[in-house]
């Protein structure tokens, strides 16, 4: 069954059209990679799904679990299970990571009409996950992402993904700024979250990441459209021949 259906999506930013009728369907449990050159609209797509302000949808629709996603406020989408792992996670000085995690988790649970976690249950859960991701406890006491290395920031994103258990994870250029060891730790964390109910969109320029997070489907985007889709071998093909061949197709 389709978890996410994007139909003929047209998006503008300040009068300039970035997505010109993009169509994409993602089934539950599948991992889709979206590749493409700079400026092809990959990040715009991830932002529009998450509801980031500043984008004007001029046509098309997005259905998430059969519901009209574009009609929901961004925090509502988060509570419904949309998670965006940011390319550049922001720093929030003075707000301890632990406080942030708890506030966010309880806000989502409240929005879904679920009970808030008790402090011991919450702490136990966070400790468990952070151990798996090799996140030291003192990092959780520091301000959100303040003074974190690139690798720590990305691990913190994966930690939140594991904690919130979203049904759709969008990873926006998770590999940017990571060395190979940091990449492996983050990817292992992501792979541990793969399940028949959870879908993922992995946005990347490079095939390298897809060695660690192996996709079911690969799409190539160019100039605001999906120009080619295929299996994981498509990524290897791109690595060899580059994006130039698609520039004309778009």
């Amino acid at each position: 069954m389709a978890l996410l259906e994007i139909k003929n999506l047209q998006v503008r930013v300040e009068e300039r059209e970035i997505l010109h009728g993009l169509t994409l369907t993602i089934d539950a449990g599948k991992v889709h990679a979206i590749m493409g050159p700079n400026g092809s609209g990959k990040s715009t797509l991830s932002h529009v799904i998450a509801g980031k302000p500043g984008y004007e949808v001029t046509g098309g629709e997005i259905l998430f679990k059969g519901e009209d996603l574009l009609a929901m406020a961004p925090d509502e989408r988060a509570a419904k299970g949309v998670f965006l792992a940011f390319q550049y996670p922001v720093e929030i000085p003075g707000v301890a990571t632990m406080t942030f995690l708890r506030t966010a988790l309880n806000a989502q649970r409240k929005a879904r009409g679920e009970e808030e976690y008790s402090t011991p249950d919450f702490l136990k859960k966070v400790r468990e996950i952070s151990k798996q991701l090799n996140i030291p406890q003192d990092m959780l006491k520091r301000g959100v992402n303040v003074g974190f290395s690139g690798g720590e920031k990305k691990r913190n994103e994966v930690l939140q993904m594991a904690l919130f258990q979203p049904s759709l994870c969008i990873l926006d250029e998770m590999d940017s700024g990571l060395d190979i060891d940091a990449l492996r730790i983050a990817a292992d964390g992501v792979n541990a979250l793969r399940s028949p109910e959870r879908s993922m969109i992995v946005i990347t320029h490079y095939q390298r990441l897809l060695n660690y997070i192996v996709p079911d489907v690969v799409h190539v985007m160019s100039k605001g459209r999906v120009v080619k889709s295929g299996g994981k071998e498509l990524a290897l093909e791109l690595e060899a021949s580059g994006y130039a061949q698609f520039e004309d197709a778009a």
Binding site: P74, D75, V90, I92, T103, A104, A107, A111
Partner: peptide, 15 residues
């Protein structure tokens, strides 16, 4: 920063 606000909101917090 609007980016900081959006980050929080994406994690389920209201504005």
């Amino acid at each position: 920063s609007e980016d900081v606000l959006f980050y929080c909101i994406q994690r389920g917090l209201s504005q």
